[in-house]
Design a protein around this nucleic acid. Structure first.
Lengths: 340, 340
DNA sequence: AATATCGTCGAAAACGTTTTCGGTGCATAA
DNA sequence: TTATGCACCGAAAACGTTTTCGACGATATT
């Protein structure tokens, strides 16, 4: 049960390897008659071109690399899905790696992908990455990179992001629009760019609507996924900030945390306090009341990121000059029952 | 900025390609002196072996394929992570594809992976797959496959599963142990093997403990993730089955659904009714009360599945005879506040 | 002095493709 | 008749590695 190669077909038909190859690839300088002979036999012998040989000859593998901070995460796994599905549609397969938000892993994994000679790399920077030599090295080797979600201006390449600041602005504005006067913000430490941007959006929405920014009702958690921290903040709000009537939380989980605790403390949502989260996790559909939030379209983002990468791969092959662009994926406010 | 190859190093040093290759691979028939010369120059020129050429020559790519029904899913994304991390540790990369639980996709994607000449395939069968020719074809081509999670006895290969029946038995037994006398079961349609097995486990736990099985308190939802269906079932329970004091649900989501609604109807959990779910989703930590459940160790499962695949890849290369085994990943009951 | 052993190296085949560049043979035009 | 064109085909190089096998000189053995 040995595999069938061009040379076997050639030998079996008494013609040359070159002709067989050209017949299968529909070259114009081989007669219809021999084309048919070749194709028929190839069919019978179940011929499949050897991808290693093709890659070696064509200097491309039709495989791309995807580095993601965290796979088990609603937003990111949606990105993976977007990338994979779009890639599959375009004839590419994708190798996925998880950096755990670590610079060291990111560096190693980029090397692994380069060693495999992937055709391109999709990368979301680790939180503690501050040096970009390792990614500039990719570009210098002639391998296209596109940055998604966590990006930096310091690397010149295609980028795809959501506009955190605008999204946060809109979320906050929604609270203002429905009549909230005293709007708290719950966020993590001001380190990741997303946290900074959402905080900025929150502040600027307040300012544009003549609401004084009050730093005492900006609450900081240790982690963006600390349900317990969120609950403590709810206690704090009930105890010392009775006048708060709106809350914009950095993540749906934090939003859910405060909401659960506030309900336990007999605060009515949304009558007493309106709450809006961020991401549109699966979670938001099953809280009670259902949580308003900002939809963060991971799938779309993955699709677009792959599209840009493919575009660059093709441009690169053509030797075209590439002007890099940053694509913003629009977010959308999902209004449910927790805001009114 | 052209890439450096063995032949460039050879030419530059005035020696043969063969010697360069052997020097870099520490063959014993090249002197220490030339080894050093070669390695030094390779270092300077930043030599990286061309993986296409290596794959072609060695007939292996150090890449495996992973087909998963659904990426955006807590259990499955944990499996991906387990596979990827273990593979990376062992020098392998993994191409992931999502079958959407469709037989047609599964078939196509297997072909894609075979066309790329991956070294092995990890596969969880789609729900509607009933014909196994496409996976037996993998084996016949000499490519190792291991089945995980959704398997079938009709394919002879390594398998890794959790024992759904035993896990369900233990979950139900836990309810019995804490004193429940009338235990309901919530499940989806009896089509997927997991549903069948968990149902069996539920029944056998009742039987072994002299509790009569009562089909009128086995509730069927349209989907395993229908929160609304679960709520309706809660209504039904309060209305017509006041004597139910324990519930074993097929998924954490269904468990959460009934729990939320029961609470709204002033039923106390766990005082009036104890509830246990299945999977140990992230979700279970933030319900109130926190949900008891069965931990379904996806990460571990991924690790083990890759381990078995690697074992077979190596056995195959050695020409060793392979006796296939089915590995059961132990599950564990997580007791929280919803059962007492 | 002849033979065996050892350390070091390189030629060449092999993996399977794609593509360039001629080279046929044959018909048509001069 | 010779030239020109055309349709069809194949030799061979190239992609970059790994590994077998033989060759060579130098040393050790008989």
């Amino acid at each position: 049960m040995s595999t069938t190669t061009l040379s076997k077909i050639a030998k079996s038909l008494g013609i040359s390897i070159a002709t067989v190859s050209k017949a299968l690839n529909d070259y114009s300088d081989v007669s219809e008659k021999t084309k048919k002979k070749v194709k028929d036999l190839a069919e019978i012998l179940n011929y499949k071109p050897n991808s290693y040989a093709q890659s070696l000859r064509n200097q491309e593998s039709k495989i791309i690399g995807l580095i993601i901070p965290e796979i088990v995460h609603h937003f990111f796994s949606n990105i993976i899905l977007g990338v994979i599905k779009e890639a599959e549609k375009q004839g590419y397969l994708v190798i996925t790696l998880q950096s755990d938000d670590s610079y060291e892993n990111e560096k190693k994994q980029i090397q692994l992908l380069m060693d495999k000679n992937v055709d391109g790399i999709l990368l979301s920077l680790a939180d503690n990455t501050v040096n970009y030599n390792h990614v500039n090295a990719i570009k210098e080797s002639g391998v296209p990179v596109v940055l998604y979600d966590k990006i930096t201006k310091l690397i010149d390449c295609h980028k795809v992001v959501i506009n955190d600041q605008k999204a946060a602005y809109n979320a906050t504005k929604h609270l203002i629009d429905i009549g909230c006067k005293k709007i708290a913000h719950i966020r993590g430490t001001l380190k990741p760019q997303t946290t900074i941007d959402r905080f900025k959006g929150y502040k600027s929405a307040l300012e544009t609507h003549q609401i004084k920014f009050d730093n005492s009702i900006v609450f900081e958690t240790n982690s963006l996924s600390s349900f317990e921290d969120a609950k403590k903040i709810a206690d704090e709000i009930v105890l010392n900030h009775k006048d708060i009537d709106g809350i914009f939380a950095m993540t749906d989980l934090l939003a859910t945390g405060v909401m659960v605790r506030l309900k336990e403390l007999k605060i009515n949502i949304p009558e007493d306090i309106s709450i809006i989260g961020f991401s549109n996790w699966f979670l938001t559909e099953i809280t009670s009341p259902r949580l308003s939030t900002v939809d963060q379209p991971g799938f779309k983002m993955g699709q677009v990121a792959f599209g840009l990468l493919l575009e660059e791969i093709n441009d690169y092959k053509k030797g075209a000059v590439i002007t890099y662009k940053t694509t913003e994926i629009p977010t959308e406010i999902i209004i449910r029952e927790s805001t009114k």
